[in-house]
Computed example of a mutant assay.
Amino acid sequence: MFMHNKKLMYTVRVGEPNPALATLMLEQFGGPQGELAAAMRYFTQGLAESDPGRKDMLLDIATEELSHLEIIGSIICMLTKSTQGKLAEGDEEVAALYADITQGGESHTHAILYGGGPALVNSAGVPWTAAYIDTIGDPACDLRSNIAAESRAKIVYERLINVTDDPGIKDALGFLMTREIAHQKSFEKALYSMQPNFPPGKLPGMPDFTDVYFDMSQDGFDTAGEPADADALDRGPWNTGPEWTIVSDREAQAAVDGGDGTATVKLTAKEKKTAKNFATRTASDPGSDPTTGADLGAGPGAGATKKTRELVDADAE
């Protein structure tokens, strides 16, 4: 059961209307890293959670995210307060009103379609979608995803703080950004309270490959663009130390299972005949050189075509 407290979780003080800034703020209202996406992610995870402690944590944070949605929505409404009235009442000269709602970004779309209200779209006007929710139903996976989501949201808030000089907005955004840190801490604690928590899921990895690093980045260049020893460029804790076996040989990176590296399937006699007929019917003739539309319609920039080769041969004769 949810109850609405009319007091915001954090006081919103906006110095002056700014429709363009309101449009940017929509990113945290209806965007992929926004508060609604976070609330729905944790709420659905919490409903399915079987651990009582994690269930409470997820539902607590989901509820708090809804309060954050209210804060960011209130900021948007305050930033568009003057535009809302002007659009509704039409009490301003056309040119002045047009200037108000076209300050930059998608502010004109925000104003005309949504009346300056906090629409469930991101800052580019893309509608909110449940596809933002990447829950997969395994706590070790979902908690890691939640940690990443909180990290991304913190970065978006940092960027929003950097594009406004309004002290009241900076203060409120700073609070929202800080709560992303607190939630990340809770999710990390919950993750590491599960032992073991890596790898996610029940099945173990194949022991022959869990400690292998395939060195695919060879013939490297340094920061000045000069050729450098690849071994010196791509070494770090992600592939060095006693727990890692590095495979740099190109031949050893193929067919690592010891097989021949081909793809096979068992077919019935009828399926084999059908597959062979299809391959025969669609086979290419490598000895042919047909004239195509690319040859007939070739113009400047088309590169070498059959037509140009014929002209070269004619000149040679």
Rank of each mutant, 00 (worst) to 15 (best):
D211E: 03
V12Y: 08
S248Q: 14
A124H: 03
D211K: 15
D219K: 15
A20S: 08
G137K: 02
D208V: 05
I76R: 00
D142P: 05
I76S: 00
T210F: 15
L296D: 08
E89S: 08
M57K: 04
G303F: 04
P139T: 07
K272N: 09
E251A: 15
F221D: 10
E93H: 15
Q84L: 12
M25N: 01
D171I: 02
D171F: 00
A172F: 00
P227V: 02
K86S: 10
A294P: 01
A283C: 07
T291D: 08
T240E: 07
N122Y: 00
G258L: 11
P290A: 04
H183C: 08
K55Y: 06
S284D: 03
I75N: 00
E271D: 07
Q84R: 02
N197M: 05
C141A: 12
G205H: 10
V265W: 15
D289R: 12
E64N: 08
I61G: 00
E251N: 10
R179Y: 10
G115N: 07
A302V: 06
P207Q: 10
A254K: 15
K170I: 14
L267S: 10
A148M: 12
Q28I: 01
G293A: 09
T282H: 14
P290F: 07
N239F: 09
Y98F: 13
A304D: 13
A182N: 09
L176E: 01
N5G: 10
